[in-house]
């Protein structure tokens, strides 16, 4: 008996969740309908609970009628957990296997999609500087969430993170002292201004926008894990179209293109670090 009641409750909640996501899309243009539901539901229910609301219908009402409340939900639904040189072996592989090839191009364009608060974008900037490539590189760093992009633009992070960043930097094969790249001030580490020179931060929504630019390397880490198969294919198609032949794609450590539509057009450069290369001779 009790189970059926629970099932009923869950069913109602799932309908309400669908309606809420539909409302967010229709009113604000942010499309979470093809996100994996378990994660979205967890975040939304946490918000409902912390506000003491009775149901997701109440949350929908608040979202539609209360000015500015959508920003709270956007923050809940975008994952902004990142760090400099997250998964150091990925950066070491980039430095050793990808940058030597990119070096052969007169001008390098990199698209960092879903850059969140920017830590990994600056990690690339530092690496490119150390390899003597930064002056002829353009980095496009995009995210759908304007709030996190603002943090990214500033390049100011809590000083408490520096210990971890420094350890990561070293493991990733950094050739200098990490302390050369920031200024410690009170509780903050302010990254050097000149790291920002060739980075353009811009709003871009992988779910609803299209090809962004033609680039040599796309980095998009721990974004696809939140998408269902349909959406993954859509986004990977955009990446495939945005890359030059022979261009590179770097994903998060648990992401994979193996079972997606673009797989025939790519070869695997590094299966552990999830680095792929777009084939020069397409099938």
């Amino acid at each position: 008996m009790e189970q059926t009641e629970h099932q009923n409750e869950i069913q109602t909640e799932d309908i309400e969740l669908e309606l809420l996501l539909e409302a967010i899309f229709k009113k604000f243009g942010y499309d979470f309908r093809d996100y994996n539901k378990a994660h979205v539901k967890r975040r939304i229910l946490q918000r409902k609970q912390s506000l003491g609301l009775r149901s997701l219908s109440d949350l929908q009402h608040k979202t539609l009628h209360e000015k500015g409340f959508i920003d709270v939900l956007l923050r809940d639904l975008s994952i902004n957990v990142t760090e400099m040189y997250r998964d150091p072996s990925f950066y070491a592989a980039m430095r050793n296997e990808v940058l030597p090839i990119l070096k052969t191009y007169p001008y390098i364009k990199i698209w960092h999609a879903g850059c969140a608060t920017g830590e990994e974008v600056y990690s690339f900037a530092i690496m490119l500087k150390e390899e003597g490539l930064y002056h002829r590189t353009q980095i496009y760093a995009t995210d759908f969430n304007p709030v996190v992009l603002e943090t990214a633009r500033k390049g100011i992070y809590p000083i408490s993170k520096i210990k971890e960043f420094t350890a990561n930097y070293q493991q990733a094969g950094g050739t200098h002292s990490f302390s050369e790249y920031y200024l410690a001030k009170y509780d903050s580490a302010i990254l050097n201004q000149n790291l920002r020179e060739n980075i353009v931060f811009a709003e871009h929504n992988l779910v609803t926008d299209s090809v962004f630019a033609e680039v040599h390397l796309i980095v998009c880490r721990n974004v696809l894990i939140y998408f269902n198969k349909t959406l993954q294919n859509r986004v990977l198609q955009i990446f495939s179209e945005s890359l030059i032949k022979g261009g590179y794609l770097g994903l998060g450590s648990k992401e994979n293109i193996m079972f997606t539509d673009i797989y025939p057009f790519f070869e695997t450069l590094d299966s552990k670090n999830k680095i792929y290369k777009k084939k020069v001779h397409l099938p």
Partner: peptide, 18 residues
């Protein structure tokens, strides 16, 4: 470093949220 969750269709999903 990843949360593990189960979807309605019995597939697994991962998350790096807090």
């Amino acid at each position: 470093n990843y949360h593990l969750l189960v979807e309605k269709d019995h597939s697994l999903s991962l998350s790096v949220s807090e």
